[in-house]
Amino acid sequence: MNTYAIAAIYYFEMSRWLRTIGQSIAAPVISTSLYFVVFGSAIGSRMTQVDGIAYGSFIVPGLIMLAVVTESVSNASFGFYFPRFTGTIYELLSAPVDYAETLIGYVGAAATKSVLLGFLILLTANFFVPVHIQHPLLMLLFLVLTSVTFSLFGFIIGIWADGFEKLQIIPTLILTPLTFLGGSFYSIKMLPAFWQKVSMANPIVYLISGFRYSFYEAGDVNLSVSLLMICFFLIAAFCAARWMLKSGYKLKN
């Protein structure tokens, strides 16, 4: 295995992030604070508890997932698309690097940023509401699995996109609505029966539910189903990314 190549890609991607560290930290902290002001204080003060949890605390896992999913996709897709756009991708394509090393470097860096972001939001949330994590290891597992899965998904978009518009289409038109409708700010059980069934087709529901369970032992879906679903998405995304790199899809023609 070309470990020097993995380190080079990882370091390159992380230093790109560190160059704009102010932005990288300020943006999620500000948006999380705004969510707490709007949902936690303005709306939350008029709401009773959800699943026996104060509303402000209830939305913390959903907020973290919202940011982690969005940032994972955005970081990984941009990280791989930009070299294609500038032409510097020639170097990666001509280097003695295989698909696994490429994925570990790019996806590893994007997932690292997302995990750090998740902890940053958790820290910010602590300033607004009390947050207790019942199962810290399970929480970490969900955070890492979600970061890796959606970084892989972003990586796929980075290969598929052939313009900056396309880079934004899936996150804006599909991912953000799915995340908002995936129970970030409410429990699926609060919906009418029909919409509860519809929501079960939304993969994000399983991630948020499992993640929320690790905090409060309360979720919309059984924990093992949540874990199975995230593992399924991870494997599906990995297979798609592997096929793209090995076949040279949109890269070698």
Binding site: N2, Y4, A5, A7, A8, I9, Y11, F12, S15, R16, R19, P83, T86, G87, T88, Y90, E91, L92, A95, P96, V97
Partner: peptide, 25 residues
């Protein structure tokens, strides 16, 4: 390559070291 494809925001030192690492050294 023919095209001037470079990482505009990187320094000369970093980009040359990046290439060395990418090729497994």
């Amino acid at each position: 390559p023919q095209e001037l494809a470079t990482d505009a925001f990187e320094t000369v030192w970093h980009t040359v070291n990046f290439s060395r690492g990418l090729f497994g050294l």
